[in-house]
């Protein structure tokens, strides 16, 4: 057992967990942040993606201890003050989700993709960059549309800042 201290969605937390605890379990079981999902045991589906120190990583493939001292953002921390993040809004407006299970990980990965590529995104790049996120419902068509749409919105939002 160890005490893991980290910041989650802007809030400092301190949790006692077994050393084998994965970040995703700390989030779901200890912090009740159940928006982050688990869809596989082989680190491939991306349902568990969160941001750790600004990078989109698979929280099922990181020990809680590895995240100690880090800044973690989960899907629950993305909307600011009740206002949806442009990526969240774009997923809704483009029907980029059906059952919603892959959605939190998809959105967290997508935000990271736009951060890295800025306005230079095209369909092929988005499809390639979504390689680590599996969706069984949407056939990706509307997810790709949503990411491209959000990339535009995020650029506008940035320009306005």
């Amino acid at each position: 057992m160890s005490t893991v201290k980290l910041t989650v969605n802007g809030r400092a937390v301190s949790v006692d967990v077994e050393d084998r605890t994965l970040l995703v379990h700390l989030l779901r079981e200890n912090l009740n942040l159940t928006g982050t999902h688990v869809g596989c045991d082989t680190s491939q589906c991306g349902a568990c993606v969160v941001h750790v120190d600004g990078r989109a990583v698979k929280s099922c493939t990181m020990l809680a201890g590895q995240a100690a001292g880090s800044n973690v953002t989960t899907i629950e921390g993305l909307a600011k003050g009740g206002e949806l993040h442009p990526m969240q809004a774009a997923f809704r407006d483009n029907h980029g989700l059906q059952c919603g299970y892959c959605t939190p990980g998809m959105i967290m990965s997508a935000v990271d993709i736009v951060h890295r590529h800025g306005g230079k995104l095209d369909e092929e790049t988005v499809r390639h960059e979504l390689e680590g996120n599996i969706c069984r419902c949407t056939g990706y068509h509307n997810i790709v549309k949503a990411v491209l749409d959000a990339a535009g919105r995020m650029k506008v939002a940035q320009a306005a800042e």
Partner: peptide, 9 residues
């Protein structure tokens, strides 16, 4: 290598 999340870590 792998996907973006794998490449980050």
């Amino acid at each position: 290598i792998g996907d973006p999340a794998v490449r980050y870590r």
